[in-house]
Computed example of a mutant assay.
Amino acid sequence: MAHVLVVDDSSTMREIVSSYLIQNGFEVTVASDGRDGIAKLQQDPGIRLIVSDVNMPNMDGLTMAQKIRSEFGNKDVRIIMLTTEDNAAIRARGREVGVTGWIVKPFRGDAVLAPFRKFCGLS
Protein backbone atom coordinates (compact mmCIF):
# COMPACT_ATOMS: atom_id res chain seq x y z
CA MET A 1 0.00 0.00 0.00
CA ALA A 2 1.29 3.46 -0.88
CA HIS A 3 1.90 5.72 2.08
CA VAL A 4 1.06 9.43 1.90
CA LEU A 5 1.61 12.12 4.52
CA VAL A 6 -0.99 14.92 4.47
CA VAL A 7 0.21 18.09 6.22
CA ASP A 8 -2.24 20.95 6.78
CA ASP A 9 -3.19 23.13 9.74
CA SER A 10 -6.85 22.89 8.70
CA SER A 11 -8.47 19.76 10.12
CA THR A 12 -11.12 20.05 7.41
CA MET A 13 -8.53 19.92 4.61
CA ARG A 14 -6.69 17.04 6.29
CA GLU A 15 -9.98 15.15 6.43
CA ILE A 16 -10.99 15.90 2.83
CA VAL A 17 -7.63 14.89 1.35
CA SER A 18 -6.97 11.90 3.59
CA SER A 19 -10.50 10.48 3.19
CA TYR A 20 -10.25 10.69 -0.59
CA LEU A 21 -6.84 9.04 -0.65
CA ILE A 22 -7.87 6.26 1.75
CA GLN A 23 -10.94 5.54 -0.40
CA ASN A 24 -8.59 5.15 -3.35
CA GLY A 25 -6.19 2.68 -1.77
CA PHE A 26 -3.57 4.86 -0.12
CA GLU A 27 -2.37 4.54 3.46
CA VAL A 28 -2.44 8.01 4.99
CA THR A 29 -0.80 9.71 7.95
CA VAL A 30 -1.76 13.27 8.87
CA ALA A 31 0.19 16.12 10.44
CA SER A 32 -0.93 19.57 11.59
CA ASP A 33 2.13 21.63 10.55
CA GLY A 34 5.64 21.31 9.16
CA ARG A 35 7.23 20.32 12.46
CA ASP A 36 4.67 17.59 12.95
CA GLY A 37 5.17 16.53 9.33
CA ILE A 38 8.92 16.11 9.76
CA ALA A 39 8.37 14.11 12.95
CA LYS A 40 5.90 11.79 11.19
CA LEU A 41 8.25 11.34 8.22
CA GLN A 42 11.12 10.44 10.55
CA GLN A 43 8.90 7.88 12.29
CA ASP A 44 7.82 6.23 9.03
CA PRO A 45 10.40 5.76 6.29
CA GLY A 46 7.70 4.15 4.13
CA ILE A 47 6.15 7.51 3.28
CA ARG A 48 6.54 8.09 -0.47
CA LEU A 49 4.47 11.25 -0.99
CA ILE A 50 3.82 14.38 1.08
CA VAL A 51 0.85 16.61 0.28
CA SER A 52 1.30 19.84 2.22
CA ASP A 53 -0.15 23.29 2.67
CA VAL A 54 2.29 26.19 2.44
CA ASN A 55 0.99 28.58 5.12
CA MET A 56 0.93 26.91 8.53
CA PRO A 57 1.91 27.92 12.07
CA ASN A 58 5.12 26.65 13.72
CA MET A 59 6.69 25.62 10.40
CA ASP A 60 5.39 26.37 6.92
CA GLY A 61 5.37 23.82 4.10
CA LEU A 62 8.30 25.29 2.17
CA THR A 63 10.54 25.31 5.25
CA MET A 64 9.50 21.71 5.91
CA ALA A 65 10.40 20.75 2.33
CA GLN A 66 13.75 22.50 2.60
CA LYS A 67 14.59 20.66 5.83
CA ILE A 68 13.52 17.31 4.39
CA ARG A 69 15.80 17.81 1.39
CA SER A 70 18.81 19.50 3.00
CA GLU A 71 19.00 18.65 6.69
CA PHE A 72 17.64 15.12 6.41
CA GLY A 73 18.95 14.40 2.92
CA ASN A 74 15.68 12.80 1.82
CA LYS A 75 15.63 13.13 -1.96
CA ASP A 76 13.25 10.22 -2.61
CA VAL A 77 9.96 11.40 -1.13
CA ARG A 78 7.80 13.47 -3.49
CA ILE A 79 6.51 16.74 -2.03
CA ILE A 80 3.37 18.34 -3.46
CA MET A 81 2.13 21.70 -2.21
CA LEU A 82 -1.67 21.94 -1.96
CA THR A 83 -2.30 25.60 -1.24
CA THR A 84 -4.19 28.78 -2.04
CA GLU A 85 -0.82 30.39 -2.93
CA ASP A 86 -0.46 30.92 -6.67
CA ASN A 87 2.35 33.48 -6.58
CA ALA A 88 5.21 32.93 -9.05
CA ALA A 89 7.87 33.91 -6.48
CA ILE A 90 6.55 31.44 -3.91
CA ARG A 91 6.37 28.69 -6.55
CA ALA A 92 9.98 29.49 -7.53
CA ARG A 93 11.05 29.15 -3.90
CA GLY A 94 9.24 25.82 -3.85
CA ARG A 95 11.27 24.57 -6.80
CA GLU A 96 14.47 25.80 -5.15
CA VAL A 97 13.80 23.81 -1.97
CA GLY A 98 12.83 20.62 -3.81
CA VAL A 99 9.06 20.71 -4.14
CA THR A 100 7.91 18.22 -6.78
CA GLY A 101 4.60 19.84 -7.72
CA TRP A 102 2.07 22.56 -6.95
CA ILE A 103 -1.72 22.28 -6.71
CA VAL A 104 -3.90 25.33 -6.09
CA LYS A 105 -6.88 24.63 -3.82
CA PRO A 106 -9.60 23.48 -3.94
CA PHE A 107 -8.53 19.84 -3.86
CA ARG A 108 -9.86 17.88 -6.83
CA GLY A 109 -9.03 14.27 -6.11
CA ASP A 110 -9.81 12.86 -9.53
CA ALA A 111 -7.36 15.30 -11.15
CA VAL A 112 -4.44 14.15 -8.99
CA LEU A 113 -5.16 10.46 -8.50
CA ALA A 114 -3.08 9.20 -11.44
CA PRO A 115 -0.01 11.35 -10.67
CA PHE A 116 -0.20 10.44 -6.97
CA ARG A 117 -0.34 6.74 -7.85
CA LYS A 118 2.67 7.19 -10.13
CA PHE A 119 4.63 9.04 -7.41
CA CYS A 120 3.92 6.16 -5.04
CA GLY A 121 4.89 3.47 -7.54
CA LEU A 122 1.33 2.23 -8.11
CA SER A 123 1.00 2.82 -11.84
Score class of each variant (00 low, 15 high):
T83Q: 02
I50W: 11
Q66H: 15
I90Q: 06
V6W: 01
M81A: 09
V17P: 09
L41E: 07
Q66D: 15
D60R: 03
Q66L: 12
M56V: 03
F119M: 07
G98N: 08
L122V: 06
A89W: 13
A92M: 12
T29Y: 05
R14K: 02
S70G: 09
T12W: 04
M59W: 05
S10V: 00
I47H: 01
A89S: 15
E85T: 09
V6Y: 02
V104F: 06
D9P: 02
K75L: 05
G34Y: 07
M64S: 02
R78L: 10
I47C: 07
D76Y: 08
E15Y: 14
R95L: 11
D86M: 04
D9L: 03
G34H: 05
T12C: 11
L5V: 09
R35F: 11
I22T: 12
A39I: 14
S19W: 05
K67Q: 14
V51Q: 08
T100D: 10
I90M: 12
V30Q: 10
V17F: 03
N74F: 08
R48L: 13
V7T: 00
R95K: 13
D86Q: 11
G121Y: 00
F26I: 06
E71G: 15
T100F: 08
K67H: 15
D76E: 13
R108K: 14
I103W: 09
N87E: 06
I103Q: 05
G34A: 12
R108P: 05
L122C: 12
L5A: 06
E96R: 10
R35P: 04
S52C: 12
R48N: 07
V77R: 07
S52H: 04
V7C: 00
L21E: 02
V7D: 01
A88E: 15
G73F: 08
Q23W: 04
Q23S: 14
S32M: 14
G73M: 06
P45F: 07
R93Y: 09
T12V: 14
I80S: 05
